[in-house]
Design a protein around this nucleic acid. Sequence first.
DNA 1: ATGGCTACTCCTAGTAGA
Length: 282
Amino acid sequence: MGYQSRVLRPLYCWLISRHARVAADTMKIATWNVNSIRVRLPRLTSWLRRVEPDVVCLQETKVVDDNFPFAELQDLGYKCLINGQKTYNGVAILSRLEMIDPLPNLPDDSPDVERRLVSATIDGIRIIDAYAPNGGFVGSERYSYKLDWFRRLRAYLDSSFSPEHPLLVCGDLNVAPEDRDVWDPAKWRGKILFSEPEKERFQHLRAWGLEDALRLRHQESGLYTWWDYRAGAFRRGQGLRIDHVLISKPLVDRCATVEIDRDERKGDKPSDHAPVVMSLES
DNA sequence: ATGGCTACTCCTAGTAGA
């Protein structure tokens, strides 16, 4: 009874979290496009030590499974579920908790597909780690592939899950959904990452029954997750919000905080993407 | 100044990312 009190509950949870690998009170789930896990490993490990997330969905690991840095991540207490590929793409879920029913790819992907998806159930939540195609330029073959990839992801949700169950789709979705997610909407309008058909596909995915977690907590413009390496884009505040955490209805009330860790875009050898971290209450 | 970088590869030039 005392543990439910406004004062005692946080204290209790703080004490528990200091002595257990798994926080008793909240679960931290993060997504981060690391743009090569081999180059980013020193930053990733120090970030894991600092933030202590329970689950991390990584994109663009760019490494075959045999060369994945299992040992370093296991030393920090993470099990690794990977769907790797040489040079391009590659996704991984790191988790302190058990991962049930692991699955690579979309059900209608061919065996030699680009490795853009991996999913597992963690603590009763179906977690889908996704790296959407970039799309090249509007009208290109890669653009068509991107639009169709979104259609297939929505079809997968339709055929395999119910929005009444706890489900989360997160990752680099390579779409900035609204004007407030883009540093210069006029300049970006109609361009890749911000074209109307891409935004429609993103909204169609959400219409299955997913909330944009960051927008549950923050309404302002200027919240970006990616900045071009060129032109001092980060320094100039020229970014886009293209990395997302989308959650089904049962998770909405549990969503306590959602933050972009933009400090990770600073300093030596950053990824061009910043992590997004969500805290879920139990 | 309308482009500026980074990471990859059967690696020093070409491709892709976003």
